[in-house]
Amino acid sequence: MENLFINIARTLSDWLLQLGLSHFWTDLVLLVVQWTAIILIITLNVIILVWLERKISGFIQQRLGPNRLGPFGCFQTIADTLKLLTKEDIIPSQTDKLIFKTAPMFFIIVSVLLYAVIPMGKDMVVVDLNVGLFYFISVGSLTTIAILMAGWSSNNKWSLLGAMRSVAQMISYEIPLAFSLLGVVMIAGSLNLSAIVAAQSNIWFIVLQPVAFVTYFIAATAELNRGPFDMPEAEQELTAGAYTEYTGMRWALFFLAEYTNLVAVSALAATLFFGGWQGPLLPSWMWIIIKTYLIMLVFMWMKWTFPRIRMDHLMSLSWKVLVPVSLINILVTGVGIEIFKGMGW
């Protein structure tokens, strides 16, 4: 079980090499297979997550949630997806059409690209990039542009307001997010995600970097535009924020991308702070799934428990609390490493 997927990949590559393909083409075919697997994982996860989120919100608000289609309503998301496929495609007449059409595509492309570097098990990573963490942060920050594109091109007041709020919020929380991960990098001494996982074989970084984890978690919630930081999409005042004008599949792509980002950010949290795929008994790829889902459950729990935060409070939380705290965290981590080194650990 442990090497299930690795064995499949090895068998495939051996078979291809036997067929007389060169190493380059074998690598290419393997990459296509891995990419397809990732797309399948993403879509499957999103279908489960949307259902799970609706069920959990129902549980928290003491109602039933989806319960008609299939046992516990588990086919509800599939029905919704089919419905979205058949919806007519409306592009309002005054929009900037090119940007309007590219925005959802750009969003989903950026979200899928994040999965290239996440280790999904022992030796199970598509591209074991030496600057993996840096890649993740820089590509992840591009989502801001997608939302701005959507909001600006819609030529709608709700959209523009939502997009501007979203950009202000996301760039503000980008800083504590990037700073909080510096502590982890300092201890691990590498930006390679596999190396960071390996560095946690004795002790998880959540123990060494609790402040960094809390900062990362809050900043990530804001980056995802999830509640309690969902001012950009505050449906009671902004309709749907930047997504107001989108219909059918274009809207579905935004939705898909948001949940894709949620999984990616949770998987990164599991990788950096909870030992990644390491764990006893169960195979490694099972452990990362368990850890990722536990973190996502906390995200959902937070969203449905806390009321929305006011815009000025939201901004001051980032700049006046999280940024100083994460700076101090870097300082304390540096002092701690020097002290431990001095003690000869």
Binding site: D27, L28, L31, V32, W35, I39, L84, L85, T86, K87, E88, D89, P104, M105, I108, I109, V112, L113, A116, V126, V127, L129, Y135, G248, M249, R250, A252, L253
Partner: peptide
């Protein structure tokens, strides 16, 4: 490999939109 991954990913939303174009009203 990352470049190939990017090119493959470009296909995904295009395929999704094409599917929607086939089925939609």
């Amino acid at each position: 490999a990352l470049g190939v991954f990017l090119i493959l990913t470009l296909v995904f939303p295009v395929a999704a939109m094409a599917a929607a174009w086939l089925f939609r009203v």
